[in-house]
Design a protein around this nucleic acid. Structure first.
Lengths: 186, 186
DNA sequence: TATATTTGTGACTGATTAGTCAATCATGAA
DNA sequence: TTCATGATTGACTAATCAGTCACAAATATA
């Protein structure tokens, strides 16, 4: 494993555990098993490390969703794949998902370039626009639909992680809830 | 204004601006116009201040919602009042709402007693249970419905604050979205 | 008025912080 | 073997931190 990745991995763990400012750069280096100074060779400042970690994790999620989304299926199946694979990724990577949420509601979000944020949601918005034009989705603003969808994922994530469900029960809840959501939007 | 309230007010502003650990207690005292030591007379530690501020704001929100919710109306109107008054409060108090979100996704949430968290959502859960028993709401777990509802409020808040809507347009969006949400749950 | 009690002050402290830098190390070419 | 290069190190620093404390001001009691 590369030293840069070791640092990112250590930072993720400590940030979620203690918060951004609650985690000293020295502690991150220690956890990563590298020297204090090494961290600053890979990331000029602590802030740069925080932002780099956010983008890294978001890219990972985007890649996962993209791989699990059939491109040639119909709109409903494609959106369903996007939503469900996001949720499954979150359930498999709770620490990473928590980090995203944490940064999203923190002042750090202002340091992430608008362009980066836009590129992340762009594929979803495009798909929603397509759904509206085809008359499948209700004629609402695309970003309202996106906002409702992504917050539904978060709500469902919260509910599922607060219970000790079997995989089967988990799946049933997810399927049922998606169908409800879909009915709401069509 | 009491000194305690001055400190809470200053803390709120700085926490949302710079984050919890990013805000020094000295800066809070300065912003509040009191001496450094005074802060520690009202709050034993910085952590205690953070938690006290959270509970204070949550109580304020709960009181607002309670005042704006007609007790003798039917289930739908009561839930609608709860949801919409939460949303209107959030739109009128964006900094406070942001603070709640920020703390909710931070490690500090673990320091808030379970009992306090439960008491906050208890009235909502009771109402949802009632709705399920009366066959108005779908027979889903009450906390799933609660989780979906509260996250939709957040989604709608995000959407509305990202636009520059007129009050009329804002209201229209809120009404439409609530009706969709209600259809989904009934 | 005199005394007691509560409340407020800000200089102070030991600990911790982000970031620096001169020195050391590993590697591979000449 | 020698030398050059870039990665790695950790001791170091100036700044900042949360929290303390001896004292002063304000208020209450007598």
């Amino acid at each position: 494993m590369e030293r840069k990745d070791l640092i990112l991995k250590a930072a993720l763990k400590l940030f979620v555990d203690k918060g951004f400012h609650g985690t000293a750069t020295g502690k991150i280096a220690q956890e990563a098993g590298v020297a204090n100074g090494t961290l600053f060779q890979y990331f000029k400042t602590k802030d740069e490390l925080v932002i780099a970690l956010y983008i890294h994790i978001k890219d990972e999620l985007a890649e996962y969703v993209s791989k699990n989304t059939a491109g040639n299926a119909d709109i409903k199946e494609t959106i369903k794949s996007q939503i469900l694979s996001t949720l499954y990724w979150a359930l498999d990577n709770p620490v990473k998902f928590q980090f995203i949420q944490q940064l999203h509601t923190s002042p750090y979000i202002g340091q992430v370039e608008q362009e980066v944020l836009y590129k992340q949601i762009e594929p979803h918005l495009t798909l929603i626009h397509k759904g509206i034009k085809q008359g499948i989705l209700k004629p609402l603003p695309a970003d309202l639909i996106y906002s409702l969808l992504s917050n539904q994922v978060f709500g469902l994530y919260q509910f599922i992680t607060s219970k000790k469900f079997s995989k089967a029960k988990q799946n049933e809840t997810i399927q049922t809830t998606f169908e409800m959501l879909w009915d709401m939007l069509t």
